[in-house]
Nucleic acid binder design. Structure first.
Lengths: 353, 353
DNA sequence: CTGAAAGCGCTTACAG
DNA sequence: CTGAAAGCGCTTACAG
């Protein structure tokens, strides 16, 4: 059914149909009602392509997940093996939250997952084809910066979630990141409050902003409490399960052992749990472990892992809201926001004072 | 950049541009090369809306996730609480796999998650607006049947994943389900091979096809081995963690206890683990547990859960492939397929012979 | 082999 | 307040 058909059926012009659908003023209530009734009755919906071509918005945004393995460096939200990320604990809530928030704001969400530089061309083509009004990028690494900056320069509306680097207002984009620093502060304050004075850390790969921020929060909080970090209790991991495992073996081989270890993400905490079990130690009796991310599995570990929740769903929602706002108001954007982190207290930390 | 601009730039007509893009025959290689080079150079991509409006395909399918809570009955793939399903162990791999397979076949995927009957109208409007060439539905319940049948009758291409009922070739749609029966057979054969003769079962809600099929496979395999099901060892659960917990408490209160319990999904197995721990029993020393679904957390349970893997990624890929095939060949479809289930042997079952 | 032109179904100034 | 008409950027018969 075309608007023309509907128009004939009820004796108005196509223009009138369009006008009531698009909420033009100055239409008598009677006309409006008649049209609305007919729309309902005949199940009419304007052809999306025709609308878009004629200049209206198609109310479509894209959520673009980048999992491009280009440099051998594993991003902490990505899997380490070559299997595709069909159930990635980080991407999934983001995808769902973006889609959900978009729907709430009466938008549609296109999803595109790029695994290779080849796929990146397809991503670019989504913009060139004018399929969307804006896009949210997740999982960005260095490799994609060039493309993203180019898109921003072309005036496309872009929101970036959890970017490794924050480019602040230099670029007209929306940057939403978790407050990693705050998360670490909360974690360490909690451990100190429990009486821990000897706290070790397994970091993520420190060329990642998130890893660095988590380390910064850790260090600052330690020194605020007058505590020092024993060098033997520092392990530079890379956000993988294996590095959590290795980190524990490294730290617990030191002469003086810490009473708690801050593990910079939950994935590494899994490895840490394994190593601790193998050494024959008990959590939290012999050593307290605190994680980061509040990933899906953390509550299923034994014992359930105390961790820092950075709600990627909240981050995704906020990014979506800001993106659609900027699309609708066609305003220039240079937004940087951090989303609060909260401590999730479970059973992997013991009070020792 | 429009095709006309490009055309002028290299001295051909718009038609020629279109023809090389759409791979028309009878274009001299020289012309083709010239156009291709210009497309590359100027980053030209045909406007998606214009293409679609002019009659070409927009290569877009939708993945529609239904999580409509209408009847108080919890579908086994849905969460039991009211929080949105941002990390559902079932939906996420489906979404990712559909998107991935679509991209591989050079299609785009729109994602829409419906939580209410209100949202269902938006879903219908996606079809009415002609935004897509076809759609894959996941999580269907009775409530949506009416809409889906209507869409099928309107000749929309539809694939249904894990439908509660299979409507066979009565409806021109694609039905892809896991082979639940086969999965149960494999699980029980495995337990029998380990020497178990006394096997209990916690079922899902039996108005669900999947629950019934899993039960059927269980019963048939038992009787094929000349084993009987003690009525006290049967518990009618509903696929929720709580019912797994209740199921164990019910079954282990019987006079004669089983040596193994077949728990019809991993979510219930989590509850079962809890109940068993509370009773003071050890898995698998005191009782063997086998699950179903191979959900994300199953390998993180203690001990890691032996379970049946029904790859929803495979199901989703197959559905996507068949859907796009049917879109491209515009063929009538009435396809019903089952995807193999495989046993994932971990550490929750003990050999007792 | 290739260009000119109609047409896809809307939206939006422009008239009235 | 509302209709007629141009135009959005393609695709596809139709000519040549």
């Amino acid at each position: 059914m075309r608007s023309e058909d509907l128009a004939k059926l009820i004796g108005v012009s196509r223009s009138t149909i369009t006008r009531v659908i698009n909420n033009y003023p100055d239409i008598p209530q009677a006309t409006r009602d008649k049209v609305l009734k007919a729309i309902e009755e005949y199940n009419y919906a304007p052809n999306a392509s025709a609308r878009k071509l004629a200049g209206a918005t198609n109310k479509m945004i894209a959520i673009i997940v980048l999992d491009v393995k280009d440099d051998g460096v594993t991003h902490h939200v990505k899997t380490t093996d070559d299997t595709l990320i069909y159930n990635n604990p980080f991407f999934s809530p983001v995808i769902n939250a973006v889609s959900d928030q978009a729907n709430k704001m009466d938008y549609y969400a296109l999803i595109s997952i790029a695994y290779s530089k080849e796929d990146l061309k397809k991503v670019e083509s989504i913009f060139n084809q004018k399929m969307i009004e804006g896009a949210i990028f997740v999982g960005t690494q260095e490799a994609e910066n060039e493309l993203i900056f180019k898109l921003i320069k072309q005036n496309h509306k872009i929101a970036l979630i959890d970017t490794n680097e924050i480019y602040s207002k230099k670029h007209d984009a929306i940057y939403i990141n978790p407050d990693n620093f705050e998360g670490s502060v909360k974690a360490i304050n909690y451990l100190v409050e429990l009486g821990h004075k000897n706290i070790g850390i397994i970091t993520g790969n420190l060329n990642k902003l998130s890893a660095q921020e988590r380390l910064d929060g850790f260090k600052e909080t330690l020194s605020r409490h007058g505590l020092v970090l024993n060098c033997d209790h520092f392990y530079h991991g890379d956000f993988t399960e294996n590095s959590g495992y290795d980190g524990v073996n490294h730290i617990l081989r030191a002469h003086s052992k810490p009473t708690a270890i801050f593990v910079s993400n939950d994935t590494m905490a899994i490895g840490a749990y394994k190593a601790i079990a193998e050494i024959g130690l008990k959590i939290p009796e012999d050593i307290s472990i605190i994680g980061f991310d509040n990933s899906f599995i953390s509550s299923y570990l034994t014992p359930p892992l105390t961790t820092v929740d950075i709600s990627f769903a909240d981050i995704a929602k906020r990014a979506t809201t800001l993106l659609i706002d900027s699309v609708e108001n066609n305003k220039k954007v240079g937004i940087v926001e951090k989303i609060h982190a909260t401590l999730i207290e479970r059973e992997s930390c013991k009070r020792i004072n």
